[in-house]
Amino acid sequence: MLSVAALVTGMVSLQSGATFAKSLFPAVGASGTSALRVGFSALILVAVWRPWRRSLPAREAGWIALYGTALGLMNLLFYLALARLPLGPAVAIEFVGPLAVALIASRRRSDFLWIGVAVTGLALLLPISGQDGLDPIGILLDLGAALCWALYILFGQRAGRIDGGQAVSLGMFTAAIVVAPFGLSEAGPALLNPGILAAGLGVAVMSSALPYSLEMFALRRLDRKSFGVLMSLEPAVAACAGLVLLGERISPIQWLAIGLVIAASVGITVSTRRTAPTAAVLEA
């Protein structure tokens, strides 16, 4: 039960951090907030893992660079989407990335059912019917984040063979380098305001450092299938956080869409082979 509580606490922390980040958008924009989150997360991870203690083979540096670039763009595109979308639907759409990776790894005929469920859920979130439709630019940005999440998982599997801590810390450092120009361009000197920096540190701790640590704790004690099923609840946790902390009310149709995405994620997780990747930690 302790591992389940740790995982749920990590999800709540992650989505609460996202709502806190959204409150910073008026001051420094989505790009500026993303730069703060990724930058402080990089500093924390580098301090914890101290990647300089081990040499990095030149042939592996490219995988680290790809992994970090995907991580940085995933965070940036998700925050840009979050500026236009409610938190719950945004997280549900982004889940298309890890769902696609799990489906590719599974290749089971029964998973076509879950493809249909996921596609139905996604279709219900598209701006094709009246007031329930979401911002189309936000959806495109979110789908870009989903693609980057899929690449992050694939590149992360290769980079993680080097050394888990070294790969994560150097990958986050690379992500910070990728995102920083966008943040500085949008926020300018406001990004260095002491109050903003303190808030950015809070976002990094709530959205990366704390959930990452709790998920690692849970992953060591839960089997991959149980871990994946529990992680599938992330969109629902996000929707509740958006409702409670931001007052973001979503329609019954959008709640149904989120439920379908969760159902597809659970179904795919239960049916995939042990070697299939699950939703990775450090998600946006």
Rank of each mutant, 00 (worst) to 15 (best):
residue 261 V to P: 04
residue 270 V to L: 14
residue 103 L to Q: 12
residue 52 W to N: 02
residue 50 R to K: 15
residue 58 A to S: 06
residue 208 S to T: 14
residue 258 I to H: 08
residue 36 L to Q: 08
residue 81 A to D: 07
residue 107 R to E: 04
residue 88 G to Y: 10
residue 167 A to D: 05
residue 162 I to E: 08
residue 132 D to L: 07
residue 14 L to W: 13
residue 52 W to H: 12
residue 231 M to P: 00
residue 100 A to V: 15
residue 39 G to L: 09
residue 31 S to N: 14
residue 35 A to D: 08
residue 182 F to T: 02
residue 123 A to D: 04
residue 86 P to Y: 03
residue 140 L to P: 03
residue 157 Q to I: 13
residue 129 S to G: 12
residue 34 S to H: 01
residue 133 G to L: 06
residue 151 L to H: 08
residue 22 K to T: 12
residue 33 T to V: 12
residue 165 G to E: 05
residue 210 L to T: 05
residue 147 L to W: 03
residue 3 S to G: 04
residue 139 I to Y: 02
residue 130 G to L: 09
residue 125 L to V: 03
residue 11 M to G: 11
residue 7 L to R: 09
residue 163 D to S: 14
residue 283 E to Y: 14
residue 111 D to C: 01
residue 42 A to H: 04
residue 138 G to V: 02
residue 107 R to D: 04
residue 169 S to N: 05
residue 33 T to A: 15
residue 39 G to D: 10
residue 118 A to P: 08
residue 44 I to G: 11
residue 119 V to Q: 03
residue 132 D to E: 15
residue 234 E to P: 00
residue 156 G to I: 05
residue 188 G to H: 07
residue 6 A to D: 10
residue 44 I to L: 15
residue 39 G to N: 10
residue 74 M to H: 11
residue 275 T to F: 13
residue 40 F to D: 12
residue 131 Q to W: 07
residue 50 R to M: 13
residue 25 F to Y: 12
residue 16 S to Q: 09
residue 7 L to A: 11
residue 279 A to V: 12
residue 146 A to C: 13
residue 224 R to I: 03
residue 51 P to W: 01
residue 158 R to H: 06
residue 48 V to L: 15
residue 165 G to Y: 03
residue 135 D to E: 07
residue 237 V to L: 04
residue 167 A to L: 11
residue 90 A to D: 04
residue 284 A to L: 02
residue 97 G to Y: 05
residue 242 G to V: 13
residue 211 P to K: 05
residue 151 L to D: 09
residue 44 I to H: 10
residue 107 R to Q: 08
residue 105 A to W: 08
residue 63 W to F: 15
residue 153 I to F: 11
residue 136 P to C: 02
residue 57 P to C: 02
residue 115 I to N: 04
residue 159 A to I: 08
residue 283 E to S: 14
residue 229 V to P: 03
residue 41 S to H: 00
residue 10 G to Y: 06
residue 205 V to K: 10
residue 171 G to V: 07
residue 241 A to K: 00
residue 209 A to M: 12
residue 98 P to K: 03
residue 104 I to L: 02
residue 204 A to C: 05
residue 122 L to A: 09
residue 160 G to D: 00
residue 91 V to I: 14
residue 183 G to P: 08
